[in-house]
Design a protein around this nucleic acid. Sequence first.
DNA 1: GATTTTAGAGATCATTTGATCAATAAGAAA
DNA 2: TTTCTTATTGATCAAATGATCTCTAAAATC
Lengths: 215, 215
Amino acid sequence: MHMTLKPGAPTAPANSTAPKRRLRPAERRLQIVEAAVAFFAEAGLAGTTRDLSQRLGITQSLLYKYFDSKESLVEAVFERVYLDRLQPEWRALLLDRALPLRERMLRFYTAYTDAIFTYEWMRIFMFSGLAGAQLNARYLGHLRVAFLEPMLGEIAASAASARAPDMEDIWNLHGGIVYLGIRRFVYQTPTPDDVRPAIQRAIDRFLRDFGIGER
Amino acid sequence: MHMTLKPGAPTAPANSTAPKRRLRPAERRLQIVEAAVAFFAEAGLAGTTRDLSQRLGITQSLLYKYFDSKESLVEAVFERVYLDRLQPEWRALLLDRALPLRERMLRFYTAYTDAIFTYEWMRIFMFSGLAGAQLNARYLGHLRVAFLEPMLGEIAASAASARAPDMEDIWNLHGGIVYLGIRRFVYQTPTPDDVRPAIQRAIDRFLRDFGIGER
DNA sequence: GATTTTAGAGATCATTTGATCAATAAGAAA
DNA sequence: TTTCTTATTGATCAAATGATCTCTAAAATC
């Protein structure tokens, strides 16, 4: 018997509302990329072009009209998934001393987890990390410089106690929060529907430790 | 061009010290499983049997003398990787009130991260999680019942303040620590060589939050 | 040393899968 | 309506890959 260990095509109905019509290139391309995001998130980056095309209700060869290779399709998927997830204004939010630091961090992590706690993002990020894609390192570097380091600076500035956090403390806070998404979407283990209470407690715990009271 | 997105066989020298001799079945089987652990950790569970056999310096067909299918080989890999990682005595350690709680938690997480912060374990755990293997959920369930819930109980018992942690707080602590390994082995991003200081700070921060002083 | 057992190699099969290309028909242009 | 463009299909290729089978030679047994 010929067995493969890849997840393959999980029971996915071919687009049942099949108009079977010719689409304008731009539309079709977008449709393909969006389906590919969902498909690769589920099946992994080793998912086959045939399974993807079946899910779209188009022929496999049509994919090659829009992408030179599977690799370039995956690249388009990355672009689509990563693009515009990190909002530059979050930086201003974190630095806005008109707001209490706790409030700023709460808002930041609420917005951040709203953005990345999706089945597609979480899993594709993991898949690409495991595949050794440079993207992840760049993403985390950007995250650190644009948001986490400013956050660290603000906490240090507010810290009443002698102790101030270092970058590893920040990563610890960050990891504790992100782990919620990993449990939910990678390990597919039960997690609270609303993650905000857990996040709030994590942030409060963190700030309290550096002498920044809730009140 | 025929391109595949799988990591394939990363520049791995075929066992250069090739004695090329006949091994007794038990030895050969073990040799295969150990090589498979390293190989699948690197290439993912979709790595090919041919690449694995090449790395071992044996023929691909020989693998099938020892395993019915690739699937059963992967199962043997799981068994090898998961088996005996979690030491039952850690539970007794966590419950040993002769030791300060902080000390118990410190020792537990030192032992735990010593056990799982390896390239093989971290990556194979992620791969199998993404592949939808039930194993991960079972593992985490076991971890929770055997260690994390006892830990939660001990913290609640020691908590001076009115507030006591709930399971999500424990997962937050746990996630913050495990994230170190994810950064190192999955995202392959720089992390401190010695993780103990960061772990110590995370534990102290946690305990302090529930009124359990270091001193 | 002769005989038997079986670990291992090598060839090969059947699918799978990324990719290509000529033929077709849907829709726009005339 | 007719003509033209091109999105889409269907057939096909070549390489990759899990699996099987026969044969050989190393080691165990006598």
